[in-house]
Design a protein around this nucleic acid. Structure first.
Lengths: 242, 242
DNA sequence: CGAGGGCACTAATCTATGTGAGTAACACCC
DNA sequence: GGGTGTTACTCACATAGATTAGTGCCCTCG
């Protein structure tokens, strides 16, 4: 995250802050913590007194089922709040992991509640953020439940690029995407082998390249068509449509 | 919904309201509208100036993908707010349908915003509601992505019973569940044929009965085990554990 | 600079679940 | 009270994708 308070950068994406509001945000102390790839950040059942914002790298929310299989339900990039909901929900119902090396900014619930009380407009934007997350969950469910492997993977790529651009991380059809094929398999609910086949198919069609922690989309319109992608569910302020 | 203001009954599930709070809620005008089974309630892209609460029957949130296949992402029973998020999100990103005949209570965003402003504690509970919904989306994603057909169906049954009990609709292992097998197939992302096979297997094992708009669970512990069901994600105030 | 560990990738085989094409049992309606 | 629509249910067969068991390429670290 560029210099400045991480929460400030996040809010400034959708809001124009008054000086008083900006000051209130800057007053919130932040502890920045680094995590290595595949390190657990929080565990299901944890009771939190702080929430965090992703500053660098990629984190995820996941769950493991009885048989040991794991589903990644959400990917968190710069500006996302993986556990904002613990502000109001007593315990965490999923695990949170670092997917790549990453750095998180922790703020206390107490401070966030005070902000919410004294600057309801900002609290509302935080609430809005959690609602957009919900919209993304819905779309991922559609993806996992109904789309074929190639569309499914294509859809994920479209989303990642748009969200990265929104976070100021990507442009011109390319963005950082430091995840392994095994990670992709847990996001898309396919086997790692099939992820590999599918990526190759997309590559051979000249739609994307993926590797070395980076995703590049070569033919956005074709990918969007294959993916059956409509960006409305991301509720982006900047309406990059086609 | 029993007599009284629908929003009042909903909030009273988790909160003890002061007389002033209760009065503020009762002051909100409600329009009650009936829908027939399979009638669309709202369409993707709609811009709302009102939100609703389910009073009777079952509604769902769903999306249709390019090939025409449909995923039901959420089921809404008495007390649920299928489109509460339109309070802060400009447009709807999914369709909302009546699954069975149902009755909804509509309130204007204006009134809800006023309530939120003047009684932040109540607004917070509404926010909390949307966060629980998010937790349910996460669990459904795990269900659709990782669990086998029988566990998947079992998990859905466990959730429905617990949520129905919480809504005051079911008890002693039985609750109304007015959905068809085709509906179930769209919730679980399996084919209708396979839903039928799976239900029969669960019946033969003496775990559940389902039919005539009603679900009965005969062996809760066994079903919970098969389903790999842990209720924590529902964030119920009454902690019915095992 | 050589060894070990990830990770991408491949190939052969298997299986859970989908598909298509029906029949049977009701419920509603004219 | 027979026609029509809806839902449950069956069977035979097809297939997308899982599984298992690898190989080989880097990168890193000692």
């Amino acid at each position: 995250m560029p210099a400045g308070h991480p929460l400030l950068s996040k809010l400034a994406r959708t809001l124009v802050l008054s000086e008083a509001e900006a000051e209130a945000v800057r007053a919130i102390p932040v502890e920045s913590v680094a995590f290595k790839a595949d390190q657990m950040i929080s565990r299901e059942g944890d009771k939190h007194s702080r929430s965090c914002l992703v500053m660098e790298g990629v984190a995820c929310t996941s769950k493991v089922v009885a048989g040991g299989k794991r589903q990644i339900m959400a990917l968190h990039i710069r500006g996302d709040g993986p556990d904002l909901h613990t502000l109001l929900l007593k315990h965490l119902d999923s695990d949170i992991w670092a997917v790549s090396d990453c750095r998180l900014a922790f703020m206390t619930h107490k401070d966030l509640r005070t902000l919410n009380r004294e600057h309801p407009r900002l609290g509302e934007d935080l609430w809005r953020t959690t609602l957009v997350e919900g919209a993304i969950y819905r779309e991922w469910m559609v993806n996992v439940g109904q789309r074929q492997a190639d569309s499914r993977m294509a859809h994920l790529c479209c989303e990642i690029l748009l969200r990265s651009e929104e976070a100021g991380l990507g442009q011109d059809g390319t963005c950082p995407f430091p995840v392994t094929q095994a990670d992709l398999s847990e996001m898309t609910a396919m086997s790692p082998v099939h992820v590999n086949r599918t990526l190759q198919a997309l590559r051979e069609q000249g739609l994307i390249s993926f590797g070395k922690g980076r995703l590049t989309i070569h033919n956005w319109p074709a990918l969007v068509t294959l993916a059956d992608f409509r960006a409305d569910y991301l509720h982006l302020p900047t309406a990059k449509a086609a």
